[in-house]
Design a protein around this nucleic acid. Structure first.
Lengths: 245, 245
DNA sequence: AGCCACAAGTGTAAAAGATACACTTAAAAA
DNA sequence: TTTTTAAGTGTATCTTTTACACTTGTGGCT
Protein backbone atom coordinates (compact mmCIF):
# COMPACT_ATOMS: atom_id res chain seq x y z
CA UNK A 1 0.00 0.00 0.00
CA UNK A 2 2.78 2.49 0.82
CA UNK A 3 3.55 3.46 -2.71
CA UNK A 4 4.08 7.08 -1.83
CA UNK A 5 5.90 8.71 1.06
CA UNK A 6 8.81 6.29 1.01
CA UNK A 7 11.71 7.09 3.23
CA UNK A 8 9.73 8.72 5.98
CA UNK A 9 10.05 7.46 9.49
CA UNK A 10 7.32 5.24 10.92
CA UNK A 11 6.26 5.43 14.55
CA UNK A 12 4.60 3.42 17.24
CA UNK A 13 1.33 5.17 18.01
CA UNK A 14 0.07 4.49 21.51
CA UNK A 15 -3.24 5.48 23.06
CA UNK A 16 -3.84 6.22 26.71
CA UNK A 17 -7.26 6.65 28.26
CA UNK A 18 -8.06 8.89 31.17
CA UNK A 19 -11.21 7.27 32.49
CA UNK A 20 -13.33 9.43 34.77
CA UNK A 21 -16.05 8.15 37.05
CA UNK A 22 -18.17 9.66 39.80
CA UNK A 23 -18.91 7.67 42.89
CA UNK A 24 -19.51 8.37 46.56
CA UNK A 25 -19.61 12.06 45.83
CA UNK A 26 -16.12 12.05 44.38
CA UNK A 27 -14.55 12.27 40.99
CA UNK A 28 -12.49 9.17 40.39
CA UNK A 29 -10.04 7.85 37.88
CA UNK A 30 -9.52 4.31 36.65
CA UNK A 31 -5.88 3.30 36.92
CA UNK A 32 -4.11 -0.02 36.80
CA UNK A 33 -0.83 -1.67 37.55
CA UNK A 34 1.13 -2.09 34.39
CA UNK A 35 1.45 -5.72 33.38
CA UNK A 36 4.51 -5.53 31.15
CA UNK A 37 7.92 -3.97 30.92
CA UNK A 38 9.12 -1.31 31.15
CA UNK A 39 7.74 0.02 34.44
CA UNK A 40 5.90 -3.21 35.12
CA UNK A 41 3.89 -3.04 38.33
CA UNK A 42 3.69 0.73 38.46
CA UNK A 43 0.48 2.69 38.25
CA UNK A 44 -0.54 3.74 34.78
CA UNK A 45 -3.45 4.71 32.63
CA UNK A 46 -5.09 2.24 30.37
CA UNK A 47 -3.29 2.05 27.09
CA UNK A 48 -2.62 0.20 23.88
CA UNK A 49 -1.38 0.67 20.35
CA UNK A 50 -3.04 1.84 17.18
CA UNK A 51 -3.60 -1.03 14.79
CA UNK A 52 -3.26 -1.20 11.05
CA UNK A 53 -6.86 -0.85 10.06
CA UNK A 54 -8.61 1.20 12.68
CA UNK A 55 -8.96 4.90 13.36
CA UNK A 56 -7.85 6.34 16.68
CA UNK A 57 -11.44 6.62 17.87
CA UNK A 58 -11.97 2.97 17.07
CA UNK A 59 -8.75 1.99 18.78
CA UNK A 60 -9.67 3.96 21.89
CA UNK A 61 -12.99 2.15 22.13
CA UNK A 62 -11.37 -1.18 21.52
CA UNK A 63 -8.79 -0.64 24.23
CA UNK A 64 -11.31 0.53 26.79
CA UNK A 65 -13.55 -2.39 26.09
CA UNK A 66 -10.70 -4.93 26.14
CA UNK A 67 -9.50 -3.69 29.49
CA UNK A 68 -12.81 -3.10 31.21
CA UNK A 69 -15.52 -4.85 29.27
CA UNK A 70 -17.33 -1.54 28.83
CA UNK A 71 -18.70 -0.27 25.57
CA UNK A 72 -20.80 2.60 24.39
CA UNK A 73 -18.86 5.08 26.42
CA UNK A 74 -18.40 8.81 25.95
CA UNK A 75 -14.83 9.30 24.71
CA UNK A 76 -13.02 12.30 23.37
CA UNK A 77 -9.60 12.85 21.93
CA UNK A 78 -7.52 15.06 24.18
CA UNK A 79 -3.99 15.69 22.97
CA UNK A 80 -0.99 13.91 21.55
CA UNK A 81 2.06 13.56 23.73
CA UNK A 82 5.19 13.20 21.69
CA UNK A 83 8.32 14.03 23.62
CA UNK A 84 11.09 11.97 22.12
CA UNK A 85 11.97 10.38 25.44
CA UNK A 86 8.50 10.15 26.95
CA UNK A 87 8.51 6.35 27.01
CA UNK A 88 11.75 4.61 27.95
CA UNK A 89 10.59 1.46 26.19
CA UNK A 90 10.74 2.92 22.72
CA UNK A 91 10.09 6.09 20.80
CA UNK A 92 6.32 6.31 20.83
CA UNK A 93 3.82 9.05 20.49
CA UNK A 94 0.70 8.69 22.55
CA UNK A 95 -2.73 10.01 21.79
CA UNK A 96 -4.57 10.68 25.03
CA UNK A 97 -8.33 10.13 25.20
CA UNK A 98 -10.62 10.81 28.08
CA UNK A 99 -13.72 8.79 28.85
CA UNK A 100 -16.72 9.40 31.10
CA UNK A 101 -18.30 6.42 32.78
CA UNK A 102 -21.46 5.83 34.76
CA UNK A 103 -19.91 3.74 37.47
CA UNK A 104 -23.19 2.61 38.97
CA UNK A 105 -24.57 1.20 35.82
CA UNK A 106 -21.69 -1.14 35.39
CA UNK A 107 -20.49 -3.80 37.66
CA UNK A 108 -18.26 -2.02 40.13
CA UNK A 109 -16.27 -5.21 40.46
CA UNK A 110 -15.54 -5.27 36.77
CA UNK A 111 -12.60 -3.00 37.33
CA UNK A 112 -11.07 -5.39 39.79
CA UNK A 113 -11.53 -8.34 37.49
CA UNK A 114 -9.22 -6.60 35.11
CA UNK A 115 -6.82 -5.46 37.80
CA UNK A 116 -7.93 -1.86 37.55
CA UNK A 117 -8.88 0.41 40.40
CA UNK A 118 -11.04 3.49 40.92
CA UNK A 119 -9.00 6.09 42.74
CA UNK A 120 -10.30 9.47 43.94
CA UNK A 121 -8.70 12.11 41.83
CA UNK A 122 -7.35 13.87 44.90
CA UNK A 123 -5.46 10.78 45.94
CA UNK A 124 -3.88 9.70 42.70
CA UNK A 125 -0.63 7.80 43.09
CA UNK A 126 2.29 8.86 40.90
CA UNK A 127 1.78 7.52 37.40
CA UNK A 128 4.36 6.34 34.89
CA UNK A 129 5.88 8.42 32.13
CA UNK A 130 3.86 11.52 31.29
CA UNK A 131 0.56 10.04 32.47
CA UNK A 132 0.15 12.52 35.32
CA UNK A 133 0.45 15.35 32.82
CA UNK A 134 -2.21 13.67 30.74
CA UNK A 135 -4.53 13.56 33.73
CA UNK A 136 -3.87 17.22 34.40
CA UNK A 137 -4.77 18.16 30.84
CA UNK A 138 -7.80 15.91 30.87
CA UNK A 139 -9.12 17.59 33.99
CA UNK A 140 -8.75 21.00 32.40
CA UNK A 141 -10.54 19.78 29.29
CA UNK A 142 -13.29 18.22 31.37
CA UNK A 143 -13.81 21.48 33.26
CA UNK A 144 -13.96 23.51 30.10
CA UNK A 145 -16.24 21.15 28.27
CA UNK A 146 -18.55 20.67 31.20
CA UNK A 147 -19.43 24.33 31.19
CA UNK A 148 -20.23 24.31 27.48
CA UNK A 149 -21.87 20.93 26.95
CA UNK A 150 -24.12 18.77 29.08
CA UNK A 151 -21.61 15.96 29.46
CA UNK A 152 -21.85 15.75 33.21
CA UNK A 153 -24.75 13.37 32.73
CA UNK A 154 -22.38 10.82 31.23
CA UNK A 155 -20.95 10.40 34.70
CA UNK A 156 -24.28 9.84 36.46
CA UNK A 157 -26.77 7.01 36.27
CA UNK A 158 -29.63 7.60 33.87
CA UNK A 159 -31.80 8.58 36.83
CA UNK A 160 -30.16 10.99 39.24
CA UNK A 161 -31.12 13.56 41.85
CA UNK A 162 -30.36 17.25 41.78
CA UNK A 163 -28.15 17.05 44.87
CA UNK A 164 -26.13 14.36 43.07
CA UNK A 165 -25.83 16.51 39.99
CA UNK A 166 -24.75 19.49 42.02
CA UNK A 167 -22.20 17.45 43.90
CA UNK A 168 -20.83 16.23 40.56
CA UNK A 169 -20.42 19.76 39.27
CA UNK A 170 -18.79 20.76 42.52
CA UNK A 171 -16.26 17.95 42.24
CA UNK A 172 -15.45 18.87 38.69
CA UNK A 173 -14.96 22.55 39.25
CA UNK A 174 -13.59 22.21 42.75
CA UNK A 175 -15.91 24.78 44.33
CA UNK A 176 -19.09 24.73 46.31
CA UNK A 177 -22.18 26.02 44.57
CA UNK A 178 -25.31 27.65 45.90
CA UNK A 179 -28.15 25.14 45.95
CA UNK A 180 -30.92 27.48 44.85
CA UNK A 181 -28.97 29.16 42.12
CA UNK A 182 -27.78 25.84 40.81
CA UNK A 183 -31.26 24.37 40.66
CA UNK A 184 -32.73 27.44 39.08
CA UNK A 185 -30.08 27.48 36.42
CA UNK A 186 -30.16 23.83 35.52
CA UNK A 187 -33.96 23.58 35.56
CA UNK A 188 -34.30 26.70 33.42
CA UNK A 189 -32.68 24.85 30.51
CA UNK A 190 -35.80 22.70 30.40
CA UNK A 191 -33.63 19.68 29.70
CA UNK A 192 -34.31 17.78 32.90
CA UNK A 193 -37.36 15.60 33.29
CA UNK A 194 -38.64 15.17 36.82
CA UNK A 195 -39.72 11.64 37.61
CA UNK A 196 -42.24 10.43 40.15
CA UNK A 197 -39.68 8.36 42.00
CA UNK A 198 -37.49 9.36 44.87
CA UNK A 199 -34.03 8.23 45.78
CA UNK A 200 -33.86 7.58 49.52
CA UNK A 201 -30.33 6.40 50.19
CA UNK A 202 -28.81 9.66 51.15
CA UNK A 203 -31.56 11.28 53.12
CA UNK A 204 -34.68 10.49 55.07
CA UNK A 205 -36.83 12.81 53.08
CA UNK A 206 -35.54 11.48 49.80
CA UNK A 207 -34.81 13.44 46.66
CA UNK A 208 -36.70 13.32 43.40
CA UNK A 209 -35.06 11.58 40.49
CA UNK A 210 -34.57 13.30 37.15
CA UNK A 211 -33.59 12.25 33.66
CA UNK A 212 -31.67 14.26 31.09
CA UNK A 213 -33.70 14.72 27.90
CA UNK A 214 -31.21 13.91 25.16
CA UNK A 215 -33.73 14.25 22.36
CA UNK A 216 -34.77 17.69 23.46
CA UNK A 217 -31.15 18.70 23.81
CA UNK A 218 -30.35 17.53 20.29
CA UNK A 219 -33.24 19.41 18.80
CA UNK A 220 -32.24 22.52 20.76
CA UNK A 221 -28.69 22.23 19.45
CA UNK A 222 -29.95 22.12 15.89
CA UNK A 223 -31.80 25.35 16.54
CA UNK A 224 -28.58 26.99 17.70
CA UNK A 225 -29.22 26.80 21.42
CA UNK A 226 -26.07 26.73 23.51
CA UNK A 227 -25.85 24.88 26.78
CA UNK A 228 -24.01 27.05 29.27
CA UNK A 229 -23.53 26.35 32.91
CA UNK A 230 -21.94 29.21 34.79
CA UNK A 231 -20.03 27.26 37.28
CA UNK A 232 -17.53 29.92 38.14
CA UNK A 233 -17.24 31.63 41.48
CA UNK A 234 -18.87 29.31 43.95
CA UNK A 235 -18.77 30.16 47.60
CA UNK A 236 -19.00 28.47 50.93
CA UNK A 237 -22.61 28.27 51.95
CA UNK A 238 -23.25 29.70 55.36
CA UNK A 239 -26.18 30.26 57.67
CA UNK A 240 -27.76 26.82 57.52
CA UNK A 241 -29.13 26.01 60.98
CA UNK A 242 -25.71 26.42 62.50
CA UNK A 243 -26.91 28.88 65.12
CA UNK A 244 -29.73 28.38 67.52
CA UNK A 245 -30.73 31.12 69.95
CA UNK B 1 16.09 1.12 20.71
CA UNK B 2 12.78 -0.71 20.24
CA UNK B 3 13.46 -3.41 22.74
CA UNK B 4 9.90 -3.41 24.02
CA UNK B 5 6.59 -3.26 22.19
CA UNK B 6 7.67 -5.62 19.41
CA UNK B 7 5.04 -6.71 17.01
CA UNK B 8 2.99 -3.54 17.12
CA UNK B 9 2.22 -1.74 13.93
CA UNK B 10 4.20 1.37 13.04
CA UNK B 11 2.63 4.33 11.27
CA UNK B 12 3.48 7.30 9.14
CA UNK B 13 2.73 10.36 11.23
CA UNK B 14 1.99 13.44 9.17
CA UNK B 15 1.49 17.01 10.32
CA UNK B 16 -0.70 19.60 8.63
CA UNK B 17 -0.70 23.27 9.53
CA UNK B 18 -3.69 25.55 9.30
CA UNK B 19 -1.99 28.93 9.03
CA UNK B 20 -4.18 31.94 9.82
CA UNK B 21 -3.35 35.49 8.90
CA UNK B 22 -5.23 38.78 8.99
CA UNK B 23 -4.85 41.23 6.15
CA UNK B 24 -6.98 43.84 4.43
CA UNK B 25 -9.62 43.41 7.09
CA UNK B 26 -10.03 39.73 6.35
CA UNK B 27 -9.09 36.47 7.95
CA UNK B 28 -6.91 34.51 5.55
CA UNK B 29 -5.42 31.09 5.26
CA UNK B 30 -2.11 30.04 3.78
CA UNK B 31 -2.56 27.26 1.23
CA UNK B 32 -0.36 25.82 -1.45
CA UNK B 33 -0.42 23.63 -4.48
CA UNK B 34 0.83 20.20 -3.62
CA UNK B 35 4.16 19.45 -5.20
CA UNK B 36 4.11 15.67 -5.11
CA UNK B 37 1.86 12.72 -5.73
CA UNK B 38 -0.80 11.81 -4.92
CA UNK B 39 -3.04 14.80 -5.62
CA UNK B 40 -0.13 16.78 -7.06
CA UNK B 41 -1.17 20.28 -8.10
CA UNK B 42 -4.26 20.43 -5.91
CA UNK B 43 -4.73 22.88 -3.06
CA UNK B 44 -3.62 21.66 0.30
CA UNK B 45 -2.44 22.75 3.71
CA UNK B 46 1.19 22.85 4.55
CA UNK B 47 2.36 19.48 5.69
CA UNK B 48 5.20 17.12 6.43
CA UNK B 49 6.11 14.06 8.42
CA UNK B 50 7.22 13.53 11.97
CA UNK B 51 10.92 12.68 12.14
CA UNK B 52 12.75 10.24 14.34
CA UNK B 53 14.08 12.61 16.95
CA UNK B 54 11.68 15.48 17.26
CA UNK B 55 8.46 16.07 19.13
CA UNK B 56 5.32 17.04 17.24
CA UNK B 57 5.66 20.66 18.37
CA UNK B 58 9.19 20.71 17.03
CA UNK B 59 8.14 19.11 13.78
CA UNK B 60 5.33 21.60 13.32
CA UNK B 61 7.73 24.51 13.76
CA UNK B 62 10.25 22.93 11.43
CA UNK B 63 7.67 22.37 8.71
CA UNK B 64 6.29 25.89 8.94
CA UNK B 65 9.73 27.37 8.80
CA UNK B 66 10.87 25.15 5.92
CA UNK B 67 7.86 26.08 3.87
CA UNK B 68 7.61 29.77 4.70
CA UNK B 69 10.84 30.89 6.29
CA UNK B 70 8.92 32.01 9.37
CA UNK B 71 9.89 31.20 12.90
CA UNK B 72 8.75 32.16 16.37
CA UNK B 73 5.14 31.70 15.51
CA UNK B 74 2.16 30.96 17.72
CA UNK B 75 1.23 27.32 17.09
CA UNK B 76 -1.15 24.98 18.81
CA UNK B 77 -1.98 21.34 18.40
CA UNK B 78 -5.52 20.91 17.19
CA UNK B 79 -6.57 17.31 16.64
CA UNK B 80 -5.39 14.10 15.08
CA UNK B 81 -7.13 12.87 11.97
CA UNK B 82 -6.83 9.15 11.58
CA UNK B 83 -9.44 7.69 9.28
CA UNK B 84 -7.92 4.63 7.74
CA UNK B 85 -8.51 5.86 4.21
CA UNK B 86 -7.95 9.57 4.76
CA UNK B 87 -4.86 9.71 2.53
CA UNK B 88 -4.93 7.65 -0.67
CA UNK B 89 -1.15 7.66 -0.77
CA UNK B 90 -0.71 5.49 2.29
CA UNK B 91 -2.17 4.81 5.69
CA UNK B 92 -1.16 7.90 7.62
CA UNK B 93 -2.44 9.68 10.64
CA UNK B 94 -2.14 13.41 10.59
CA UNK B 95 -1.77 15.74 13.52
CA UNK B 96 -3.29 19.11 12.67
CA UNK B 97 -1.74 22.28 14.07
CA UNK B 98 -2.95 25.81 13.68
CA UNK B 99 -0.69 28.83 13.52
CA UNK B 100 -1.34 32.56 13.86
CA UNK B 101 0.82 34.88 11.82
CA UNK B 102 1.35 38.62 11.72
CA UNK B 103 1.28 38.98 7.97
CA UNK B 104 2.50 42.55 7.92
CA UNK B 105 5.60 41.87 9.87
CA UNK B 106 6.79 39.34 7.41
CA UNK B 107 7.51 39.73 3.80
CA UNK B 108 4.18 39.32 2.10
CA UNK B 109 6.00 37.97 -0.92
CA UNK B 110 7.58 35.23 1.11
CA UNK B 111 4.53 33.13 0.63
CA UNK B 112 4.81 33.35 -3.11
CA UNK B 113 8.49 32.46 -3.07
CA UNK B 114 7.47 29.16 -1.63
CA UNK B 115 4.48 28.76 -3.92
CA UNK B 116 2.01 29.41 -1.16
CA UNK B 117 -0.92 31.79 -1.26
CA UNK B 118 -2.99 33.77 1.24
CA UNK B 119 -6.65 33.10 0.53
CA UNK B 120 -9.58 34.78 2.31
CA UNK B 121 -11.23 32.19 4.46
CA UNK B 122 -14.57 32.84 2.79
CA UNK B 123 -13.15 31.97 -0.60
CA UNK B 124 -11.23 28.84 0.15
CA UNK B 125 -10.90 26.45 -2.76
CA UNK B 126 -11.64 22.78 -2.13
CA UNK B 127 -8.70 21.19 -0.37
CA UNK B 128 -7.34 17.66 -0.64
CA UNK B 129 -8.20 14.77 1.64
CA UNK B 130 -9.68 15.85 4.95
CA UNK B 131 -7.99 19.25 4.92
CA UNK B 132 -11.24 21.17 4.68
CA UNK B 133 -12.46 19.41 7.79
CA UNK B 134 -9.25 20.42 9.49
CA UNK B 135 -9.86 24.06 8.60
CA UNK B 136 -13.38 23.82 9.93
CA UNK B 137 -12.16 22.45 13.25
CA UNK B 138 -9.37 25.00 13.41
CA UNK B 139 -11.82 27.84 12.98
CA UNK B 140 -13.97 26.53 15.79
CA UNK B 141 -10.91 26.22 18.01
CA UNK B 142 -9.77 29.72 17.08
CA UNK B 143 -13.17 31.15 17.96
CA UNK B 144 -13.27 29.39 21.27
CA UNK B 145 -9.74 30.24 22.23
CA UNK B 146 -10.03 33.84 21.14
CA UNK B 147 -12.73 34.47 23.67
CA UNK B 148 -10.72 32.98 26.50
CA UNK B 149 -7.16 34.09 25.71
CA UNK B 150 -5.71 37.19 24.17
CA UNK B 151 -4.36 35.44 21.09
CA UNK B 152 -5.91 37.82 18.59
CA UNK B 153 -2.81 39.95 18.97
CA UNK B 154 -0.76 37.21 17.35
CA UNK B 155 -2.53 38.07 14.12
CA UNK B 156 -1.85 41.82 14.27
CA UNK B 157 1.36 43.80 13.99
CA UNK B 158 2.92 44.73 17.32
CA UNK B 159 1.39 48.18 16.97
CA UNK B 160 -2.25 48.21 15.98
CA UNK B 161 -5.29 50.44 16.17
CA UNK B 162 -8.54 49.71 17.95
CA UNK B 163 -10.53 49.71 14.71
CA UNK B 164 -8.10 47.08 13.38
CA UNK B 165 -8.51 45.00 16.50
CA UNK B 166 -12.26 45.25 16.32
CA UNK B 167 -12.29 44.29 12.69
CA UNK B 168 -10.14 41.27 13.53
CA UNK B 169 -12.54 40.11 16.20
CA UNK B 170 -15.43 40.65 13.83
CA UNK B 171 -13.78 38.47 11.19
CA UNK B 172 -13.11 35.73 13.67
CA UNK B 173 -16.56 35.58 15.18
CA UNK B 174 -18.38 36.49 11.99
CA UNK B 175 -20.49 39.25 13.54
CA UNK B 176 -20.38 43.00 13.74
CA UNK B 177 -19.64 44.49 17.13
CA UNK B 178 -20.62 47.79 18.68
CA UNK B 179 -17.69 50.19 18.60
CA UNK B 180 -18.22 51.76 22.00
CA UNK B 181 -18.92 48.53 23.83
CA UNK B 182 -15.94 46.86 22.22
CA UNK B 183 -13.57 49.66 23.20
CA UNK B 184 -14.90 49.85 26.71
CA UNK B 185 -14.49 46.14 27.19
CA UNK B 186 -11.03 45.78 25.75
CA UNK B 187 -9.65 48.90 27.42
CA UNK B 188 -11.08 47.86 30.78
CA UNK B 189 -8.71 44.91 30.87
CA UNK B 190 -5.88 47.42 31.24
CA UNK B 191 -3.76 45.31 28.92
CA UNK B 192 -3.51 47.75 26.04
CA UNK B 193 -0.91 50.50 26.05
CA UNK B 194 -1.84 53.61 24.09
CA UNK B 195 1.05 55.02 22.07
CA UNK B 196 1.63 58.58 20.95
CA UNK B 197 1.64 57.60 17.30
CA UNK B 198 -1.23 57.48 14.89
CA UNK B 199 -1.83 55.21 11.97
CA UNK B 200 -3.13 57.27 9.06
CA UNK B 201 -3.60 54.81 6.21
CA UNK B 202 -7.22 54.06 6.68
CA UNK B 203 -8.62 57.42 7.66
CA UNK B 204 -7.93 61.11 7.42
CA UNK B 205 -8.15 61.65 11.12
CA UNK B 206 -5.90 58.73 11.89
CA UNK B 207 -6.29 56.23 14.71
CA UNK B 208 -4.06 55.89 17.72
CA UNK B 209 -1.77 52.90 17.87
CA UNK B 210 -1.76 50.52 20.81
CA UNK B 211 0.46 47.72 22.04
CA UNK B 212 -0.57 44.63 23.96
CA UNK B 213 1.20 44.42 27.29
CA UNK B 214 2.38 40.83 27.44
CA UNK B 215 4.22 41.23 30.72
CA UNK B 216 1.22 42.65 32.46
CA UNK B 217 -0.93 39.88 31.05
CA UNK B 218 1.45 37.21 32.32
CA UNK B 219 1.53 38.68 35.79
CA UNK B 220 -2.27 38.93 35.77
CA UNK B 221 -2.54 35.29 34.75
CA UNK B 222 -0.36 34.24 37.66
CA UNK B 223 -2.73 36.06 39.97
CA UNK B 224 -5.63 34.07 38.57
CA UNK B 225 -7.05 36.75 36.30
CA UNK B 226 -8.98 35.41 33.35
CA UNK B 227 -9.09 37.16 30.02
CA UNK B 228 -12.64 37.05 28.72
CA UNK B 229 -13.95 38.79 25.68
CA UNK B 230 -17.68 38.52 25.30
CA UNK B 231 -17.88 38.44 21.61
CA UNK B 232 -21.27 36.88 21.34
CA UNK B 233 -24.32 38.56 19.96
CA UNK B 234 -23.07 41.40 17.87
CA UNK B 235 -25.52 43.40 15.82
CA UNK B 236 -25.62 45.51 12.74
CA UNK B 237 -24.86 49.08 13.64
CA UNK B 238 -27.47 51.51 12.43
CA UNK B 239 -28.14 55.18 12.56
CA UNK B 240 -24.78 56.46 11.41
CA UNK B 241 -25.36 59.42 9.06
CA UNK B 242 -27.25 57.22 6.66
CA UNK B 243 -30.28 59.50 6.55
CA UNK B 244 -30.30 63.17 5.81
CA UNK B 245 -33.51 65.15 5.92
C1' DA C 1 -46.83 8.57 69.71
C1' DG C 2 -43.99 12.26 69.75
C1' DC C 3 -39.66 14.37 69.10
C1' DC C 4 -35.32 14.96 66.92
C1' DA C 5 -32.04 15.04 63.24
C1' DC C 6 -31.16 15.48 58.49
C1' DA C 7 -31.09 16.69 53.92
C1' DA C 8 -34.51 18.41 50.23
C1' DG C 9 -36.80 21.95 48.53
C1' DT C 10 -38.21 26.83 47.63
C1' DG C 11 -38.28 32.89 46.13
C1' DT C 12 -36.75 37.54 46.19
C1' DA C 13 -34.19 41.76 46.37
C1' DA C 14 -29.76 43.98 45.38
C1' DA C 15 -25.72 44.26 42.55
C1' DA C 16 -23.20 43.69 38.52
C1' DG C 17 -22.78 43.33 33.81
C1' DA C 18 -24.37 43.73 29.03
C1' DT C 19 -26.65 46.19 25.65
C1' DA C 20 -28.51 49.90 22.76
C1' DC C 21 -27.76 54.15 20.99
C1' DA C 22 -25.96 59.54 18.28
C1' DC C 23 -23.23 63.18 18.15
C1' DT C 24 -18.45 65.57 18.02
C1' DT C 25 -13.72 65.74 16.36
C1' DA C 26 -9.67 65.72 13.40
C1' DA C 27 -7.67 66.05 9.05
C1' DA C 28 -7.21 65.32 4.12
C1' DA C 29 -9.26 66.30 -0.35
C1' DA C 30 -12.00 69.01 -3.28
C1' DT D 1 -13.69 77.09 3.08
C1' DT D 2 -16.48 73.24 2.67
C1' DT D 3 -17.05 68.45 2.30
C1' DT D 4 -16.05 63.80 3.38
C1' DT D 5 -14.48 60.11 6.15
C1' DA D 6 -13.52 57.37 9.93
C1' DA D 7 -12.15 57.96 15.02
C1' DG D 8 -13.55 58.76 19.32
C1' DT D 9 -16.68 59.30 23.38
C1' DG D 10 -20.95 58.44 27.84
C1' DT D 11 -25.27 57.05 29.70
C1' DA D 12 -29.66 54.95 30.70
C1' DT D 13 -32.09 50.54 30.36
C1' DC D 14 -32.34 45.94 30.58
C1' DT D 15 -30.66 41.36 31.74
C1' DT D 16 -28.16 38.30 34.43
C1' DT D 17 -25.99 36.94 38.47
C1' DT D 18 -25.49 36.80 43.11
C1' DA D 19 -26.54 36.50 48.05
C1' DC D 20 -29.29 34.76 51.36
C1' DA D 21 -32.93 31.60 55.44
C1' DC D 22 -36.70 29.19 56.40
C1' DT D 23 -40.12 25.16 55.69
C1' DT D 24 -40.99 20.34 54.48
C1' DG D 25 -40.89 15.40 54.67
C1' DT D 26 -39.42 11.25 56.78
C1' DG D 27 -36.81 7.71 59.37
C1' DG D 28 -35.08 6.55 63.68
C1' DC D 29 -34.89 7.11 68.52
C1' DT D 30 -37.00 7.43 73.08
Amino acid sequence: MTRYYNGYEQHLVALDCIVFGFDEGELKLLVLKRKFEPAKGEWSLMGGFLGKSESLDEAACRILSQLTGLSNIYMKQLLVFSDVARDPGARTISVAYYALIKIDENDRLLAETYGAEWVPIKQLPPLIFDHSQMVEKALEALRRRTSREPIGFELLPVKFTLPQLQSLYESICGELLDKRNFRKQILETGLLVKLDEKEKESSKKGAFLYKFDHNKYNSYVEKGFLFQLKVKSGHIIKGNNSLQV
